[in-house]
């Protein structure tokens, strides 16, 4: 293939951009820290002010890693779903994972007051939200897997995922309707998504899920390419369709589920990054697409996080709004420029 060398160059460029954006991200924030102090903190852990060291090492650095894991993980889930379902509108959440997570969180935040069980305040530690969100995703995942074991048709799984999403969304609306304003606000803040406030411990748990999910995705690369011919051709080439489908669903769930648990339901990145990458690197080979999407997702998330901090001000905008505000116009522009969209 004649383009491979060029694609490898682009991959390298994307990787360099990830590093660059990560550095920019670390150096920006509400507190201004000189660049050489940042470098000395990062490489020798020494700084002229102790508070700076704390800000960089305990706040900004974990946030950078969260952004990298979240962006790349969601982008990979999006790619997996788009190829599995052969649908350009598929994203990490088509299986209803984020809706499951929302339901879990909604029950914890709003359910307590609605059902009058116990004191809500007790339940609202960071970890209880993470656990509730994971349990919610897990329940929906089990339901989808049970359904997919019964079904031969992959498209039906897509519809079932959508149905689970509407079901859980309906329950969340009912809960919201009866909730007091304070709880409702808290729930909405969770649904905005957030990359900050993760301790190193939490980041490392996220990293483990991310790593397992990515490794599974890497092992699917060959079969993902075969799926481009359609399931019948793939079967004739020796792909075990349902095993492969199972692994892809598990990888997506590990990635999207853990990310939603720690950072909230971050929209758009998973859907858009694969499309953005295909515009830059026009290939269907998942050997190239997968790493490109990993880097692309990380870059988009880091850039969005920089924008969310509104450089020079002390406000931080909800990351969920920023991803769409920045990403959507870029995707629209790229597609209009190309005019012809072939998926």
């Amino acid at each position: 293939m004649p383009y491979t060398a060029r694609y490898k160059g682009l991959l390298l460029l994307l990787f360099v951009l990830v590093i660059l954006m990560a550095l920019v991200n670390v150096s920006l924030g509400s507190v201004e820290i000189p660049l050489n102090d940042i470098f000395s903190i990062l490489f020798t852990k020494e700084a002229s002010q102790e508070s700076w060291q704390y800000i960089i090492l305990e706040y900004r650095l974990p946030k950078v890693f969260t952004a990298i894991f979240t962006g790349s993980g969601l982008a990979v889930s999006g790619l997996l779903m788009q190829t599995l379902f052969r649908n350009p509108l598929a994203g990490p959440y088509v299986l209803g994972l984020s809706s499951g997570a929302s339901l879990g969180v909604a029950i914890v935040i709003m359910g307590a007051s609605v059902f009058g069980v116990g004191t809500a305040a007790l339940l609202l530690s960071k970890w209880s939200l993470v656990i509730a969100s994971s349990l919610g995703s897990l329940l929906v995942l089990i339901a989808v897997l049970l359904a997919s074991a019964k079904l031969r048709d992959t498209m039906a799984i897509l519809i079932i995922g959508l149905m689970f999403a509407s079901l859980t969304a309906a329950v969340v609306s009912v809960l919201a309707y009866f909730s007091p304003a304070a709880q409702l606000q808290q729930y909405i803040f969770w649904s905005f998504g957030s990359l900050g406030n993760l301790s190193w411990q939490e980041v490392s748990i996220l990293a483990i899920f991310w790593f397992v999910g990515i490794v599974l995705a890497v092992f699917c690369v060959k079969n993902l390419n075969t799926l481009l011919l359609g399931e019948n051709y793939a079967r004739s080439l020796g792909v075990k369709i349902s095993t492969n489908r199972f692994i892809i669903i598990i990888a997506t769930s590990l990635l999207a589920g853990s990310i939603t648990a720690f950072a909230g339901p971050i929209a758009f990145v998973g859907l858009a990054v694969p499309h953005l990458i295909r515009q830059v690197i026009p290939t269907n080979d998942h050997k190239i697409l997968l790493p490109a999407v990993i880097f692309g997702g990380a870059i988009l998330m880091l850039v969005c996080d920089i924008a969310a901090q509104l450089p020079g001000s002390e406000y931080t905008l909800p990351i969920n709004a920023i991803t769409s505000l920045i990403g959507a116009p870029v995707v629209i522009w790229l597609l209009i420029r190309k005019r012809k969209f072939i998926f």
Binding site: L228, L229, G230, P282, N284
Partner: peptide, 8 residues
């Protein structure tokens, strides 16, 4: 049936 991805 034709291959699903005509972009290949």
């Amino acid at each position: 049936e034709q291959p699903i991805s005509k972009n290949l």
